[in-house]
Every structure is written in structure tokens, then in C-alpha cells.
Design a protein around this nucleic acid. Structure first.
Length: 860
DNA sequence: CCTTTGTCCTAA
DNA sequence: TGAGTTAGGACAAAGG
């Protein structure tokens, strides 16, 4: 019995690796594809002809449903086998051209995945020695090795290169410990400190040889690091080769293999899982940059040790125990930080949960996107229903411009300005519940006119689908199972202590399911997916748009709600109203904003326009409205109370700031929350975000508009007068970052950060696509900002002056003005030299001055 | 000078 | 080889 960690194959020889290193071999599984015939009468003749083909080992006749469209009858198909998975690609083209063959299915499924699906097993699932699934819901303890290498830095100041620069250290961190050590450092020098977790070697060759021994002895299931896929492992593999030694780190004696893709590299170590934290943290966390220094500071509050790269080289060449110790301490911290980051982010727990749920191998869950995960889920269901699955659409070239677009969600125009007592309701998993309730699925969509009299319903935009009582679609079925499972997990979690292992495990599981649930809709609109069906994608979004507009209308026509003894009633429910009963409260409700799946509802209590509503009442109103709306919705769609915005300012669609209240363990907790504001964006200087946040807090939390204006004006004055730009601390708050997304010759317009990127590359700095470029704008005669932009390092080194006017005009003033204008603050109150507003055709809106507005007394 | 386009980032 | 979707704000550059 073992838990499946990895699967590898050579021809039809499969090796299944378990957590801990157990190996099961399996060699009785052959790959195949399906072929649909043009004419069933010719089956014997075609089968006979196919059997003449040398690569075909067996042909079976079977009956299957087609992948797309509502059907009542299966079709005769041929299941064509070969003995080597490599043949499938060739066979696909061969069979397609064969006379009498109409179409080919399932000829692009990876052999290991085909095996997983057909055997009913899956990644991280338990099997017995004969490869049967044991359906245990538990996990073995994983052995995790965190690894980091130090190379001898070249004198050029550039990155070390595997052809020239040797590895001087390998730093390891273990979970659980190895020989009672939490960390260990291997050093290519004999002058090492006396410690049983530091080992000195004569040189690189002996170090690398011993490292392999440690890996084999500790036998980790997971090997982690930071940027190891792009940097460390390609480097290390090359150094092993240069030293003339093998890097047999695989669990079947295989070598480390670096798979080179068009844009990236991946490390494969058979029987183990390689997890590079850098791309995962990039994807899941939003930071200005993703150096290990920044990320561990933000996530762990535990800092990397400061060691200048030139000092590292100096200490290394000094080659004394004292000097080497400094490098050892530095290296040791890095591997340890990465291990702590993995624990902190719970990324591994999440991937394990996804692997268990989808059946996809853990490594593929980590490296791949959503497609592979959804593919596995739908294949499992399709096979049960005797339905073949479509192949991925073939797309010639990468003509992105010609991709078909369809209409997405609706965003309501917000009521501008300062509002109070707003309750937010939103749909629980909107798109998945739409797909379930409307039965949107590849096997329920009517494509053949002969089924037009089967009971059906047509989407506002998109296809026509048979009703649920005729046939429940494959996709809705999967979604409903996932939805129910997630709700059950969330229910179980409520009983548990948030710190407990069980809670953490369930949380990873529910989160994994949430991600899967939300991916299905996107998958139907994705050009290269097996379920690329625009009539489904647009059916989903159009239903969503109609629904949110209907619900908004329903809420706006509710009229006044009545609060009696803390309970909410509609006028209809209460019947005769005694207007003299002063225990009754009357509240008008009005939708002021909504985005995709949410509605923001302003509550106004009679006789109370200058006071504040009670938080419990607001919540009860949100719940009441959600309940009324849900009753009108088809199952399992549901509108739920989400939060209270005691005060909220809408600047634009997708841009707002609020004082949010949440009930935590029976107590109301307040918090400033912003959405889409510059405080949240990385392409603004950090100082802009801080200043705006301070202003937002003053207004929303302390009702102090004057102080907000003060902060804004003071900051602007301070920035414009800045004159010392001598060290990084003088300028670091002004650094703007943007991502370098495509190779520079592909850009049609010269953007600021791209010009900086070009300069950096000209100076010999290596940049990878996806890197964030830092820049500052300096003074000079050039008109364009992009001609006066450079990296902080360059600007400091060359004594350039920061263009403070640019920062005030383009960075600080605009967001502060946009926010404070909402309260009637005039531009020149914020910045004395603010440009005069040019009035065009229409008259300016009349806004109350903030002096008047601040008369409101918002007691909570 | 004013409008359009390309790009990035974020919300959902 | 493999990459889930659209809506929308905001900037700088490019275009007329």
C-alpha cells in the first residue's frame, strides 16, 4: 500500500512511485485512441485494413456518445491500440487520413493520465500493490528538502555562469530533520567552522558527489527552492556534467532532467516532486518585487542576512574559518527561509488537495495551469458515461488578434460620492451555480434540430439546453458534487479550532475545490480547451447579467422595510402598519453599486438621516434581502449577506474605499478596505499609496476631512521640495515598478519601463520575461518621461536629480485629488499650484463643500 | 492640442 | 510545449 507521488514510463513499462520511495511496476496497460466511422457498414473492412498497420496492435469495436451535443444514441466507434505511447501522435495522423474514418478522439491524452483515468487511481491517492485505489482520506508525512546553492561570483559583476564559475556551497534545510539536523551546509573548502552540520570538502567535485549521497540517504519526496527551476538546477546539472559526475537524484537511479520549454525551464527528478516557490509566490501574492529578501520580509518577518555579493567573494577568497563562516551563515539562512515560506503559505497543502481531488499528479498540479486539472475531472466523468472526450482544438499560429471575444459580466455604475450604511450581498459561486441550475453542459446543448421538441430552454445569449429533468449534464453534475463537498467541509470547519491540523487540512481542501469550481466557466471560453464552447460561456455570462439586473430591480421595488424587535419585515408581511408605533423602524433600501456577482445596498432609516443605523439592523436587512432574492432564484443559486460598509466612497467602477464591519466571534470589527484604488496598485510609488491610505483613514474612520486635506497638502509640499537624492533611502518611496512582459522588439509603443529595461540589458543585466522593472523619473531636457527614467541604482550612482514636479503632478496629485474631490475638496486646497480645471461643455457638478459635509455626525 | 491606441494592473 | 475568462481605469505614447 502506498500513496502515489509520481508516475513515469518507458514504452508501456510504468513505474509508480509512492510517498517514501516505494515503487510499483505495471506493464499491462496499452495506449489507444477512438475513431468514428463514416459508414458503419464498412466496419469489418476498415478493421481489417487497420490491422495491417504495423503500429496498431489491436482494434475493438465499441459504442460511445460523441463529445458534444445532446444525444440519445451511442455511435459505433473503433478503439485502436498501440504498444508504445510515442506512436499515438503518429497514429492519430495516420488513422485520420484512413479511408472511411470521420473523426478521431482522445488521441492527445498523456499516457500517465490515461493510465490514471482508466485505472481509477490518482495523484496522492492510496493504491495497493496491484494498483487498485484504496480510497483512504489521509496523507503520509512528506520528507521535504529545501536547497540553495552559492556560486563563486565572477569579477564582471554579472551573474555566475555554469561554464566558468564553480559551486562553492550547498545549503540544505530538512523537514523532518536529517540526522537530527534542521539545516546543513556543504562547503567546497576545508576551512569550515567546527559544527556537525557544516561539512568542508576539498573542492566542488567531492561536494557534489557527497550531496548526491545525502539526497539518496535522506530520500526526500519534495525538493524545494527559490528560482531553482530557472537557475539553480540548470546550473547544478551543468556543473555535475562539467565535473564528469552523474547527478542520479531520481528514485529509479535517473539523472536530474531539465526540461526546456519555450518560455521557461522545469526540473524533473523521477519519483520526487520539485517545487519552485518563486513562480508560485509570484502568482499568489502581490508585491513590488519577488526577491527572497522582500518575500521573506513580507511573509515571515524574518529577514535574509545582508551580504554584499562582492563581500561574499572577498570572504570566500580569504578562505579562513572566520571569513567562510560568514558565507556559511548567509547560505544557511536562505534554504531555511524557503522551507519556512512553504509552511507559511500552505502552498503544498493546497496542491496536495488539488491532486487528490483531480487525480492529476502532484508535480503536474504544481507546474500546470487550470486546464490539466479540469481535463482530469471531466475525463473521469465522461468515461463513466461512455462519452468520448474532444481533443484540444488545433490552433494554427498564434494569431491572438483573431480570437473571438464574447460579452462578460455587468458592472453597475456606482452612485458617486460619500455614502453610509451600505450592506453588501453577493451570490455564492455565481457562475458554477448558474451552470448547475441552467444545466449548461456540452452534453445538454442542443445542436441537432431533431431534438428541438425535447423540453428545453434558450439562453439570453448562447445555446439552447435540455431541461434538467430530461438529463443532467456532465459539467453540472461535477459542479454540484464539488459545491456540496465544499459546503460540507466548511460546515465541518466551523466546529474546529483554527490552529488545528485538521482545520488547516480542510481549509486547503475547500480552497482547492473553490478554485476548481470557478475554473469551469473560464475553461468553456478558453480557445484551447477541450470544452471550448462559446455558446456555453456566453450563456453563463448573459444569465449572470440578467440575474443581477433583475435582483437589483427587485430590491429597488421592495419599498420600505420594517424593523420590529430586531427582525425585518416587508410591508406585505406585516399587513396593517401602525405608524404611531414608535418601536417600529422604517428603512428604505436602494442599490448603489454592483460588480458581476455583488450588490451594494444603501439603507436609509426614516427620521434618522443625520444619525447612523445600528450595525445589527443593517446586517439583518442584508440577510432579509438575500433571503427574499434567494427564494426567487433557481437552485442552487443563492444570494448571501457578505459585509457592511458603514461608510463608502465610490470613485469609479471598480474603485472604492470603505469602512467595513465584520462580525468576528460576536463582536463587530472595523477595517478600512479599498478596492482598485492606487493603494492597491504596484505601478504607483509606495508613498502615493501610503498617503492616499492615510487620507482615506482620516475621512472614513475619523470623519476628519480637514486632516485628510492637511496630509495630502503637506505630502505634496514635501515631495516637491525634495532635494537630497544620495542614497536608496532617499528615493525608495518613489520607485515605480511595472512588469516586463514580452521581448522588447514586440512592443508597439515605447513605454517608460520598457525603455528602462532596454538600458538595463545594454548594461549587461540579465532580465527574464515577467521580471518587475523598478524605475524613477529624473530631471532633464528630454520631454518624454520615458527618456528621463532609469533604475534607482543608476540614478544614485550618477548623481541625477529626481523630477519632483513629475511626481507631484503625475503621481501624488491625481489620486489624492480624485479621492478628495468626492468630498468637495478643491484642487488648490491640496496643491497650491494645481492646474486650473478646464471646463468643457457642461456645467460643473455642484458639490457640497466639505465643511458642510463634515457636519454629518456619524456615530457608530 | 485633442483623441486614439497600447499596455499594465486590478476586480470579479 | 503549455498557458482559465471579460470588464474597466489609468497612464504615456502615438497619431491626426
Amino acid at each position: 500500500m502506498m500513496q502515489i507521488l509520481d508516475i513515469t514510463s518507458r514504452k508501456n513499462q510504468l513505474e509508480i512511485f509512492g510517498v517514501g520511495g516505494q515503487i510499483i511496476k505495471y506493464n499491462n496497460f496499452y495506449p489507444y485512441l477512438y475513431a468514428l466511422l463514416k459508414d458503419n457498414k464498412r466496419i469489418p473492412e476498415i478493421v481489417a485494413n487497420l490491422n495491417m498497420n504495423a503500429t496498431i496492435t489491436k482494434v475493438e469495436v465499441c459504442e460511445k456518445f460523441l463529445p458534444l451535443g445532446y444525444q440519445i444514441e451511442k455511435q459505433k466507434m473503433l478503439r485502436i491500440y498501440t504498444n508504445d505511447p510515442k506512436n499515438i501522435r503518429f497514429l492519430r495522423d495516420e488513422v485520420k487520413r484512413f479511408p472511411g474514418i470521420a473523426d478521431i478522439f482522445e488521441a492527445d491524452i498523456l499516457y500517465k493520465n490515461r493510465f490514471i483515468i482508466d485505472k481509477g487511481i490518482g495523484g496522492m491517492q492510496y493504491i495497493d500493490n496491484c494498483c487498485n485505489n484504496l480510497h483512504y482520506d489521509k496523507n503520509e508525512e512528506l520528507k521535504i528538502l529545501s536547497i540553495d546553492f552559492e556560486m563563486l561570483p565572477p569579477d564582471s559583476g554579472k551573474m555566475p555562469e555554469a561554464t566558468n564559475d564553480q559551486i562553492i556551497m550547498a545549503s540544505l534545510a530538512f523537514s523532518p530533520t536529517y540526522q537530527k539536523n534542521e539545516t546543513m551546509v556543504l562547503v567546497a573548502s576545508k576551512n569550515v567552522p567546527m559544527a556537525n552540520d557544516v561539512i568542508g570538502f576539498r573542492g566542488e567535485t567531492t561536494l557534489l558527489r557527497y550531496l548526491t549521497e545525502i539526497v539518496r540517504d535522506y530520500n526526500p519526496d519534495i525538493i524545494i527552492g527559490y528560482n531553482i527551476d530557472e537557475f539553480d538546477f540548470p546550473y547544478v546539472a551543468a556543473r555535475y556534467a562539467q565535473n564528469g559526475i552523474d547527478c542520479r537524484w531520481g528514485r529509479n537511479e535517473s539523472m536530474i532532467y531539465i526540461k526546456t520549454l519555450a518560455m521557461s525551464k522545469q526540473t524533473q527528478i523521477t519519483g520526487r516532486v520539485v517545487l519552485d516557490l518563486l513562480p508560485l509566490i509570484r502568482k499568489n501574492y502581490s508585491y513590488q518585487n519577488y526577491t527572497l529578501r522582500t518575500v521573506s520580509h513580507e511573509l515571515l518577518k524574518w529577514d535574509k542576512i545582508d551580504l554584499d555579493i562582492r563581500d561574499m567573494k572577498k570572504f570566500w577568497l580569504e578562505n579562513t574559518v572566520e571569513s567562510i563562516t560568514k558565507v556559511v551563515d548567509y547560505a544557511r539562512r536562505d534554504a531555511h527561509l524557503v522551507l519556512k515560506l512553504l509552511e507559511k503559505t500552505k502552498l503544498l497543502d493546497r496542491f496536495i488537495a488539488i491532486s487528490k481531488k483531480t487525480g492529476l499528479l502532484l508535480q503536474d498540479c504544481i507546474n500546470g495551469g487550470q486546464t490539466g486539472k479540469i481535463d482530469m475531472l471531466i475525463m473521469k466523468k465522461f468515461i463513466l458515461q461512455n462519452r468520448v472526450i474532444a481533443m484540444k482544438p488545433e490552433i494554427e499560429g498564434s494569431l491572438e488578434d483573431e480570437e473571438v471575444k464574447y460579452e462578460g459580466a455587468i458592472i453597475l455604475t456606482p452612485k458617486k460620492g460619500y455614502l453610509k450604511d451600505v450592506v453588501v450581498v453577493d451570490y455564492r459561486s455565481l457562475y458554477p451555480t448558474i451552470m448547475i441550475s441552467q444545466n449548461y453542459s456540452p452534453d445538454t446543448i442542443i445542436l441537432d434540430n431533431k431534438f428541438m421538441n425535447v423540453p428545453n430552454h434558450k439562453a439570453v445569449v448562447g445555446g439552447t439546453f435540455v431541461n434538467r429533468d430530461v438529463q443532467i449534464g456532465v459539467v453540472p453534475e461535477i459542479l454540484l458534487e464539488l459545491l456540496n463537498e465544499r459546503m460540507a467541509i466548511k460546515k465541518d470547519m466551523k466546529k474546529l479550532d483554527k490552529e488545528s491540523d485538521e482545520y488547516v487540512y480542510l481549509d486547503a481542501k475547500q480552497y482547492a475545490i473553490k478554485i476548481l469550481l470557478n475554473s469551469f466557466y473560464g475553461y468553456t471560453g478558453y480557445t484551447r480547451s477541450r470544452l471550448y464552447i462559446l455558446d456555453i460561456a456566453s450563456a453563463v455570462t448573459s444569465f449572470g447579467r440578467k440575474n443581477i439586473l433583475d435582483t437589483k430591480e427587485m430590491i429597488n421595488t421592495l419599498g420600505k422595510l420594517i424593523i420590529r424587535d430586531g427582525k425585518i419585515f416587508t410591508k406585505d408581511e406585516i399587513g396593517e402598519i401602525d405608524y404611531n408605533d414608535d418601536t417600529l423602524k422604517f428603512v428604505g433600501v436602494n442599490v448603489v453599486y454592483g460588480d458581476t456577482d455583488s450588490l451594494f445596498i444603501e439603507c436609509k432609516q426614516d427620521f434618522c438621516n443625520y444619525g447612523a443605523m445600528n450595525l445589527d439592523d443593517i446586517k439583518a436587512i442584508g440577510e432579509k434581502i438575500a433571503e427574499i432574492a434567494t427564494k426567487r432564484l433557481p437552485e442552487p443559486m443563492a444570494l448571501l449577506y457578505e459585509k457592511i460598509a458603514k461608510r463608502i466612497v465610490f470613485e469609479q467602477k471598480k474603485k472604492y474605499a470603505m469602512l467595513r464591519y465584520d462580525l468576528v466571534k460576536g463582536e463587530w470589527k472595523k477595517e478600512i478596505a479599498t478596492s482598485g484604488m492606487e493603494t492597491k496598485r504596484r505601478d504607483w510609488s509606495p508613498r502615493v499609496g501610503e498617503t492616499l491610505k492615510a487620507c482615506i483613514t482620516q475621512v472614513l474612520e475619523y470623519d476628519n476631512i480637514d486632516e485628510a486635506v492637511n496630509i495630502a497638502a503637506k505630502t505634496i509640499k514635501e515631495i516637491i521640495n525634495l532635494s537630497k537624492f544620495n542614497c536608496i533611502d532617499d528615493v525608495k518611496d518613489l520607485i515605480i515598478t511595472r512588469k516586463y512582459t514580452k521581448s522588447s522588439n514586440l512592443y508597439k509603443v515605447e513605454q517608460v519601463h520598457i525603455k528602462v529595461a532596454k538600458k538595463m540589458m545594454a548594461r549587461g543585466i540579465n532580465l527574464t520575461l515577467g521580471d518587475r522593472i523598478q524605475y524613477l523619473i529624473y530631471t532633464g531636457s528630454a520631454e518624454k518621461a520615458s527618456d528621463r527614467a532609469d533604475t534607482p541604482e543608476y540614478i544614485l550612482a550618477n548623481g541625477l536629480k529626481i523630477d519632483t514636479r513629475y511626481y507631484v503632478e503625475k503621481q501624488f496629485f491625481q489620486p489624492l485629488k480624485r479621492f478628495l474631490n468626492c468630498f468637495g475638496v478643491l484642487d488648490n486646497e491640496i496643491w497650491i499650484d494645481a492646474p486650473r480645471v478646464r471646463r468643457k461643455h457642461s456645467k460643473p457638478e455642484t458639490i457640497n463643500s466639505h465643511k458642510q459635509l463634515s457636519l454629518f455626525n456619524f456615530e457608530v
